[in-house]
Design a protein around this nucleic acid. Sequence first.
DNA 1: CAAACCACCATACATCTGTATGGTAAATTA
DNA 2: TAATTTACCATACAGATGTATGGTGGTTTG
Lengths: 206, 206
Amino acid sequence: MSKQLTNTQQKILDFIIDKKAEGKVPTLAEIAERFGYRNRSTVRQHLQAIEKKGFIKRNPKISRGIDLLTEDKLFIPRPVLGEVAAGNPLTIYPDAIDTVDLPTIARMPKDSFLLKVKGDSLKDAYIFTGDVVIVNPNPEPRNGQIVVAVLDDAAVVKRFFKKRNRIELHSENPEYEPIVIEKDYSGFKIVGVVVGVYRNMETRVG
Amino acid sequence: MSKQLTNTQQKILDFIIDKKAEGKVPTLAEIAERFGYRNRSTVRQHLQAIEKKGFIKRNPKISRGIDLLTEDKLFIPRPVLGEVAAGNPLTIYPDAIDTVDLPTIARMPKDSFLLKVKGDSLKDAYIFTGDVVIVNPNPEPRNGQIVVAVLDDAAVVKRFFKKRNRIELHSENPEYEPIVIEKDYSGFKIVGVVVGVYRNMETRVG
DNA sequence: CAAACCACCATACATCTGTATGGTAAATTA
DNA sequence: TAATTTACCATACAGATGTATGGTGGTTTG
């Protein structure tokens, strides 16, 4: 059985996981710099310990050759910037304290952010309470994309269509009439494009 | 405006994207080896062209310092191994031809695979047609996890509970009675644990 | 046709990267 | 108390890595 990591080892592993989440793998030197070590050997010895305990797998002789093995770390906490509940104002957490466990698989697209869905008002788009929408800030959404927008201080999550002189926001549910925004209406602002919806099944224990 | 990539440049970029999706970044040498070049300079010149056209950003002097910029490539195709439609047999595609566009953000956890959901028979778990479930093969699911299992050749996606002498599969919908499997029943096999559900909002154009 | 681009090659080189080895000091454990 | 583990240091080195420079041959394009 793999033993427990020491405090220092855990911090180093967390750093590697964070880097991996950015699509990067740190070198020994980069890890050493991060923790103020003057020497790569120190890092190397820590990595050897971490590997011995079964949390990573290193490719010898290959630079940045660190693979994560740890099943326990399948999830990394990601900051959630706020909440959307269609109709209500868009809540942005002042300090982004709340986090959601995204799979380690989930490397956020650059500059995109997460919003937690509250309430079932988006259920006609098959989005439910507790779901996390991945939002890519984009000043120019393409037609047909689902966007998060603010309309007169109320948050909406709708499908975006740009017509000649106006913008239309369609609901997934055809029974609802589209919202029509005339061009240059100042109370309207696109927050971003909903890239996807992720629902974590492991932590939602029934 | 960034120009079009040439055929060769596109292939190299695709290779980098694939590697990034594995949580790795290739070196010039690795790219050269992949394409049969005898020289890293060839790769370097291609990368310079790709960077000039605005698809990547390179960190000079830093090994494996390639960042993807391309918004068009926010998604990478991932093989889908099969389909789940609760009640029906688990369909595994013989050649895994079908693919789903996962966000570039999505680095699959090791050994996990994707199953496409077909039919609305899982809607009591808020999973719908077109959704992709991320399955982590795991011989020992923990209580309360949602699992994909095969029971008498039919696929089920249920919440898993292990009792003393039996296994219970609960539906999200409390109206449905749990399925009870006595220990050592041979017609039952766990396929894996559902780690999460991802729904791509961009490609599903209404 | 000349100029530009494309797709490759070879050689040379400074720096980065991981490794090897040996040492110090403190805390923990047997 | 002795042995082990943890956490750091320094120096040295081979090979990996990105870069610089210059060359060949083919294809587009003005």
